[in-house]
């Protein structure tokens, strides 16, 4: 494992910790899209099926279980916690899951490395992860006030895949020049979707202003 990959994983983990912290400490999930969070549960469930078939490392297994556990608990808080669920911006979080999930599934059926259940679902999870942030970005754009924790959460979540891109470049040159178009292009799309957000996040940070996205 190289330093970029580790930095990516840590950024990803930190983003989730920040989100859980926000929910648990402030008993509020304002500005957080349940649609996006549910899509991440689907992403992790379909990607980590190999937990049962293949052992890679203690680190790998632990992180997979942490990502599964935390993503499920975030959805649980937003749907069922009697205080938290009342802070959910349901009327503004209107993006349809299936608009994203169905095309990704069809694409995974068409374009994959190997036609097996595990491989197609893994590919589906890669495609779905790339676009799963969209409901969250739409919700942010509709929010008048984006609190710091939410802004930092989205920033770190975007930074994680950008670090993975660097990791793939590094791996390409250090490990037999393996070409992996599916995750590479998906990761590139995923990072590009954040470009606009990154721009306004960094601008607000530099000017010491409150983050707000233009409508």
């Amino acid at each position: 494992m190289n330093v970029f990959r580790l930095a990516g994983d840590m950024t990803h983990l930190l983003s989730i910790i920040i989100l859980l912290l926000k929910i648990r400490a402030t008993k509020s999930c304002t500005g957080i899209s349940l649609k996006t969070q549910e899509l991440y549960v689907i992403v992790f469930l379909t990607r980590y099926l190999d937990l049962f078939t293949k052992y890679i490392s203690f680190y790998n297994t632990t992180m997979k279980l942490v990502f599964l556990g935390t993503s499920i608990s975030i959805v649980w808080y937003m749907r069922y916690h009697k205080v938290v669920k009342q802070t959910y911006n349901k009327d503004q979080d209107t993006f349809r899951h299936y608009f994203l999930a169905i095309p990704c599934f069809l694409l995974a059926l068409l374009i994959h490395h190997e036609f097996t259940v595990i491989e197609v679902l893994w590919t589906f999870s890669i495609y779905l992860e790339a676009v799963a942030i969209l409901p969250q970005l739409v919700l942010l754009q509709r929010s008048r006030n984006i609190d710091n924790l939410t802004g930092n959460y989205v920033f770190l979540l975007g930074a994680y895949r950008a670090l993975y891109l660097v990791n793939w470049v590094y791996r390409y040159f250090t490990e037999n020049h393996l070409v992996r178009w599916i995750p590479w292009l998906s990761g590139l799309v995923q990072t590009t979707l954040y470009a606009d957000f990154f721009y306004y996040y960094i601008k607000s940070w530099k000017n010491n202003e409150k983050l707000q996205l233009p409508a």
């Binding site: 490392s57 990502f67 791996r171």
Partner: peptide, 10 residues
């Protein structure tokens, strides 16, 4: 295909 198909990632 080689084993390092990025399946060792998260």
């Amino acid at each position: 295909a080689k084993t390092s198909s990025l399946k060792d990632e998260l």
